[in-house]
Amino acid sequence: MNTSALPPAISIRGLTKRYGPLTALNDLNLDVVQGEVLGFLGLNGAGKTTAIRLLLDLLRPSSGRAFIFGHDCWLEGLAARERVGYLPGELGLYPDLTGLEVLDFLGGISRQPVDKRRRQELFDRLELPHSDLRRKLRQYSTGMKRKLGLIQAFQADPPLLILDEPTEGLDPLMQESFYTLLKDAKQRGRTVFMSSHVLSEVERVCDRIALLRKGELVLLSGMEASRRLAPRRVRVFFNEDVRVPPDLPPGHEFVESSPRTWHLNVVGPLGPFLTVLARLPVQDLEVQEARLEDVVLKYYREGAP
């Protein structure tokens, strides 16, 4: 699918939200391409939920604009929200309603027809049988409520899914089911904008990540490009004692060294380092793949630009 001709699923321009002296979100600019899964990362209080709530017109911006499929989120809010399935971080459900009542009610006000077969498929995939759906929500566990939240977001098969911490409270099996749901949604051309704390999850399901720190976007990158920002961990084992060379190629940094073992962090290509090693009695070489976690933690901790 040629996505470049399509308007972005989400387009955010200079979005800012202030609460008195506190700036919760500062001049956010971001495009989410149709059909992609974008992971929205950040520590607690970084502004992820604020950005999501601004898109849904739950919060009013201090300045800036946002569009969903080209519709202004505030001036054409109904048209914008008509295309959205939303899972909030905390589900505010009335305990005296049954699961089915909640789904019927939310499906009814969505203006998106709910295909009964699709809904049944969701019940099956997330293992929420009708016997549970007919129970009052006060009898639901946290995980069951989360499943219900996912079903209400996915049930009308909307073109854009906005998910706030979608796997919070789900057991590992259900997390797998959710990843499958996400994969299917992506295959059908749906766009997903999801916030998460779980980096392994983001690494697995997202095409790109946007990283917020203290209300500001500090990283927007594809998954592969993000990983390239992280150092690879390299361990070299020698047959005999060797001396540490006075100069290493750029991007190479010793973590630890002993006469027969070196531990290094390497950013960039390994070629120059292999040239150095070619002159030494190398017994073995281990290269650990760069991890997204290292990039993200680096941004969190060091305040990298």
Binding site: E82, L91, G92, L93, I109
Partner: peptide
């Protein structure tokens, strides 16, 4: 009450004025 419980989030995130 609907705002405090978060129920309003679910309603107003949909096409409802």
């Amino acid at each position: 009450s609907e705002v405090e419980t978060g129920f309003a989030d679910l309603i107003l995130a949909r096409p409802l004025r």
